[in-house]
Design a protein around this nucleic acid. Structure first.
Length: 508
RNA sequence: CGGGGUGUGGCGCAGUUGGCAGCGCGCUUGCAUGGGGUGCAAGAGGUCGGAAGUUCGAGUCUUCUCACCCCGACCA
């Protein structure tokens, strides 16, 4: 996108800077990931096992995601509401599959009061304050919501209900990883109620499309839309749809799910309406969600060995301006120009940080913004004032160029678009390079062990085969692509006939 | 829950046969410096995870305990 006057371009290297205290992807992918989370100031481990503190910079990314998604939800007719964090234990067991799926990871509240330890030190649970019915800290809200919907629905005129909630949920996981899997996480959960099956299925797919658009347009991550196999299905759903993304280490990551719940919850919670014809019918349901896990996806999809790389649309700071100067007078002169440019950029809704701190040196700031994934850095010094230029560095390619200052806001705006697009294209190319059709078991195993990525292979459709493959290779069926072509073949494992390929991968 | 680790200044670590608690980074102050993590100098900061024991003396040895991390089983 050569929309600007480039005087010179030079590639620059940061090899020596992080050398000792930062792992590369090659050396140790999970350490590299943790380093980015920590050093880019996204989050840190907390005093509570399995829970993390999301720091301001990390939370700002989540807020950008929230506001984009929230708008998309509103645009598709949904409203936000809020339901309790506590769910009576009995609610959970009303839907058989649902309770089976979540029972093992529920936090339970049993008492409502503490008292001074009789022995004098600290406080203890007051045994006299035992709850009559224990409360579950929500792992998801279907039960409490459907118990509520029963009161909201009497007639077909009350439908559909299109509600979303932004909330925290708790799933007591054994092993946790920053953003990808923590005991408590933030998410949104949409819960809709419909008069007909068709309408509910339509909603399920509509929200899957919303997630797809968000992933590709905002996160710059290409995803595959698909249907989960029975064993990967949400507990209590009839069908679970998902979007699957591929991370740089060749592992898959489920980035969002949309469930068609049929009448399972309506029946469990007795939610009925009288139709136009005056007949009592059970309501049809959907639920759909994405979580702070997306921040993890963002990191693993784009970042490099120099730190975080953020797509412009989700970057809390899109442009960082670093003044270069010697004296206070120079600082003021340079900052005056910088503020002018900042105003012009902000007029285009570009978020800009002018870093005029005198307590850090330019080089230090360069590294700081690079590590934090700021898409564009502008440096302005006395030389630039003289020549009416600015130095522009883009994070995705690490290229630096000198731009004529004239029309700078347009140039930066276009560059942001170019970066957004480049990140998507790069991620797409990576996924294409790492998606292969495989027909032989040996090759299947070899690719999983040595290359990773998505494997398109035939599957006989049975849960037994899926389970065997999982046991032997740790790979799971990520999804059955939604617009899959039928193709005759033999199951990669059992050799039994199959009429379509499904996607296998090791996953987060 | 199984296997393996680690607990020493804010962070990362060293600490020998038990003998004055150290190093790097960071932090504070000053001077110089300033277009890719600045240099020099002077400072501040620790009941060594907790409890009990052995000893003239414990970061170090013994016992118990707690916490966290990594690898599995479970999961978005």
């Amino acid at each position: 996108m050569p929309v600007h006057s480039i005087i010179n371009i030079s590639k620059y290297h940061t090899k020596t800077f992080m050398a000792k205290d930062f792992f590369t992807r090659e050396e140790n992918y999970s350490k590299w990931y943790n380093d980015i989370v920590q050093k880019a100031d996204l989050a840190e481990t907390s005093a509570v096992r399995g829970c993390m503190v999301i720091k301001p910079y990390g939370y700002a990314i989540w807020e950008k995601m929230q506001s984009a998604l929230d708008k998309m939800f509103k645009d598709t007719g949904h409203s936000n509401a809020y339901f309790p964090i506590f769910i009576p234990k009995s609610f959970l067991s009303k839907e058989a599959d649902h309770v089976e799926g979540f029972a093992k990871e529920c936090a339970v509240v049993t008492h409502y009061r503490l008292k001074n330890d009789p022995s004098g030190k600290g406080i203890v649970v007051d045994e006299n304050a035992k709850l009559e019915e224990e409360l579950i800290v929500r792992p998801t809200s279907e039960t409490i919501i459907w118990d509520t919907y029963r009161k909201w629905v009497q007639s077909y005129r009350d439908l559909p209900i299109l509600v979303n909630q932004w909330a925290n949920v708790v799933r007591w996981e054994m092993r946790t990883r920053m953003f990808l899997r923590t005991a408590e996480f933030l998410w949104q959960e949409g819960h809709t109620a419909h008069a007909t099956k068709e309408e509910a299925i339509e909603e399920t797919i509509r929200m899957l499309e919303v997630y797809t658009e968000f992933a590709e347009k905002h996160m710059a991550i290409p995803v595959i839309k698909g249907l989960k196999s029975e064993s990967e299905r949400f507990a209590g759903a009839v069908d679970t749809y998902c979007i699957e993304a591929l991370m740089q280490d060749g592992k898959a990551l489920q980035a969002g799910t949309s469930h068609f719940l049929g009448q399972n919850f309506a029946k469990a919670f007795d939610v009925k309406y009288s139709s136009k014809e005056g007949k009592m019918e059970y309501v049809w349901a959907t639920s759909w969600g994405v979580s702070t896990r997306l921040v993890g996806a963002l990191i693993m999809a784009h970042s490099d060995d120099n730190g975080l790389v953020l797509p412009p649309k989700l970057a809390p700071i899109q442009v960082a301006i670093v003044p270069i100067y010697k004296s206070q007078e120079e600082l003021e002169q340079v900052c005056e120009k910088a503020r002018e440019i900042k105003r012009m950029l902000e007029a285009k809704n570009i978020s800009v940080k002018l870093d005029d701190r005198d307590t850090y040196k330019p080089g230090w700031k360069f590294n700081e913004y690079e590590f934090k994934g700021v898409p564009i850095r502008i440096a302005i010094g006395m030389r630039d004032l003289k020549n009416n230029t600015v130095e522009v560095a883009r994070r995705d390619t690490l290229e630096k160029a000198t731009y004529q200052e004239a029309d700078i806001a347009n140039k930066v705006e276009h560059l942001l678009e170019a970066i957004q697009d480049n990140l998507y294209q790069k991620a797409l190319a990576f996924r294409e390079d790492n998606t292969v059709k495989v027909d032989k078991w040996d090759e299947f195993v070899d690719i999983l062990d040595n290359k990773g990525g998505f494997i398109l292979a035939h599957w006989d459709g049975t849960a037994e085969t899926e389970e065997k493959i999982k046991e032997e290779t740790k790979a799971t069926i990520r999804c059955i692509p939604i617009d899959n072509k039928t193709e005759q073949g033999k199951c990669i494992y059992s050799g039994k006939p199959s009429n379509q390929r499904v996607i296998f991968a090791r996953a987060y």
